[in-house]
Design a binder for these strands. Structure first.
Lengths: 227, 227
DNA sequence: AAAGAGGGCTTTGTATTCAATATACGGGTT
DNA sequence: AACCCGTATATTGAATACAAAGCCCTCTTT
């Protein structure tokens, strides 16, 4: 979702959408932050109309909550919400992976390998969390691509964006990223081998571990994050 | 999703949203229909702004596709899309049901029973497909309610709205509705008994059967629907 | 006659302006 | 002093107005 999914012409609304989404996911705005339409409009140098439309889309993505006549507030991060999101992924992603592996062609295998190598390279090069996150997501997309299920992918994409906000809170991001790399390596191998059950099992573990890390992290931070 | 989920003040945008969503789900607009902003605006007696915002939301719900500078088109109904949607539900709903049953209180059980009775009453009274669809959905919501997972429910709600478009195509709607009633009865019973595995199994069958019916129906109709 | 270029018309995208609602503040009453 | 109420201000919701892109039709050219 970081890159617009369809090849729409660049419009002011989409620019504002990307800007705000980035700011929310990256943690530049934290949970509870009020997004004033006019403030954004003035900052970007546009009218409030595109800002409003962007906010509507962000609400659909679950990144903000809009209250009528009161405006948009960045969705809060809570342990309950994290569990909701990560367990939805936990059920959904392995399923899509299975569907993808049923139909995977050699090109699909290569896509996964390529996505893996990109992530590895970026990690070794010490790229920013934003870049790593994007490549991490690209890898997961590559795993799902062959399934050719736009609806399911859209659901997954939305879940991932919200999940990413929690992942960015990680205290020891480096360790998590390195661990992810190892698991990606194994996943890519299982994918290439057509070993669906092993791939699903590992993916479940991958997501469950991420969930547990996030929960632990939230408990450490305590009230600050939840507010 | 038929009734607005949060208690937002009634706004022009939300009215237009409900109107358009109804028209799409009911089949009043069929797949491929162009929705002209000004036509809707004039018809309802509002400006294009609320219409645009409603369309953006409908795109997020997967009911329309918006192409920049070309406008909104009602999403087409295809067998592939139907499989995508119904199999996503197939994975997701039983999972949420399980989570709900883990935490269900007597009030939650009563909610399910009540939703069941409402559907039964409406079916016997020969209510319209729109009403029956709404009550059918209300029953499924009741099953999921205790899970207390807003994100997951939102995903489900979106999937259901799109699934409903296919269900409305049913040739023999009556038979499907009666069959649904029987299965709802058993589901409600399993829910009350706390028999989670039986409930999940039946729900899976319930959705899988719906998927198969829909696919069969689409094949009968052939090109007309897909275009 | 077919293909391509140009221009007018239609439709969408965005800005500007007006209206309505919510919040904050201050005065008055008990 | 606490509470209620009204007004003033800030912010969002919606309408109107303007800009730009797409589409279709015609005219020209080969």
């Amino acid at each position: 979702m970081k890159a617009s999914p369809s090849i729409k012409r660049r419009t002011v609304t989409s620019s504002v959408l990307d800007l705000l989404r980035d700011r929310i996911i990256s943690g530049y705005y934290d949970g509870g932050h009020q997004i004033r339409q006019e403030a954004i409009a003035d900052e970007v140098g546009v009218s409030r109309i595109p800002v409003r439309e962007a906010l509507v889309q962000l609400e659909a993505e679950g990144l903000v909550v809009i209250h009528t006549h009161k405006g948009a507030v960045v969705a809060k991060l809570t342990p309950e919400d994290a569990v909701d999101i990560f367990e939805a992924r936990l059920i959904f992603e392995p399923f899509i992976l299975a569907k993808a592996m049923e139909k995977a062609t050699p090109e699909d295998v290569e896509r996964v390998q390529s996505a893996y190598r990109d992530y590895e390279k970026a990690l070794l090069a010490g790229e920013s969390p934003a870049i790593l996150s994007q490549l991490n997501w690209a890898f997961h997309i590559a795993l799902s691509y062959a399934a050719d299920r736009p609806r399911s992918l859209s659901v997954l994409s939305t879940l991932y964006n919200s999940a990413d906000r929690y992942l960015r809170l990680q205290i020891d991001a480096k360790a998590a990223q390195t661990k992810a790399l190892e698991e990606h390596s194994a996943l890519a191998q299982y994918f290439a081998d057509g070993n669906s059950s092993a791939a699903q099992k590992l993916l479940k573990k991958h997501i469950a571990d991420a969930r547990d890390d996030v929960i632990r992290g939230l408990q450490h931070r305590g009230a600050k994050v939840a507010s």
